[in-house]
């Protein structure tokens, strides 16, 4: 099977890879680029565990082909923190115990970042509907929603002060 050569930007760094035509972006991230933060919970776009941001749009990496990433800008959970400094969402998820097993957490963080990028001051209802594409089986979502609202508030305050 002939392979396709792809050049993309992942978390700000150039990433070149070859892949099969049938390989998903999730397969590429996990198996070819060693970025296993995005998880395969379903492979059908129903669970959101593989959420990544592709050209500023929130997508399920399992529903995008690797070959489609040519020239794209991709953000994954691995790119959220800035060196030692966690993204406020990451910090708030830990503080609020917004994770139990933690397998859905990368997807939630990426989805929540995309929400705050689009809407810095979301209501509880907006958070709940934005995150409705991400499944969590452990927490009942209570602490996740609180963590996202708290992180958004802190980020607004920081922007205001700046």
């Amino acid at each position: 099977m002939s392979k396709i050569t792809v050049s993309a930007t992942v978390n700000g760094d150039a990433a070149d890879f070859v892949c099969d035509a049938t390989e998903t972006l999730l397969d590429v991230l996990r198996d070819r680029l060693g970025l296993t933060g995005a998880k395969e919970g379903c492979g059908t776009g129903d669970c959101g565990a593989c959420s990544v941001i592709l050209n500023d749009r929130l997508v399920c990496a399992c529903l995008v082909l690797g070959a489609e990433a040519q020239g794209a800008k991709i953000e994954t959970v691995e790119g959220l923190a800035n060196g030692e400094t966690l993204h406020p969402l990451q910090r708030k998820f830990i503080e609020h115990a917004a994770l139990q097993c933690g397998v859905c957490t990368p997807g939630f963080l990426v989805a929540a970042k995309s929400l705050i990028d689009h809407n810095p001051d979301p209501t509880e209802e907006q958070v709940r509907y934005w995150l409705a594409g991400n499944l969590c089986r452990c927490t009942g979502y209570d602490k996740i929603v609180r963590a996202v609202l708290d992180a958004a508030a802190e980020m607004r305050e920081a922007n205001h002060a700046a």
């Binding site: 296993t36 995005a38 966690l86 830990i94 994770l99 933690g102």
Partner: peptide, 16 residues
């Protein structure tokens, strides 16, 4: 939790 950072940064290694 002690495994918090691993789980919010994608470092934690799950089965797959």
């Amino acid at each position: 939790r002690p495994d918090g950072i691993d789980k919010v940064t994608g470092r934690a290694r799950f089965g797959a």
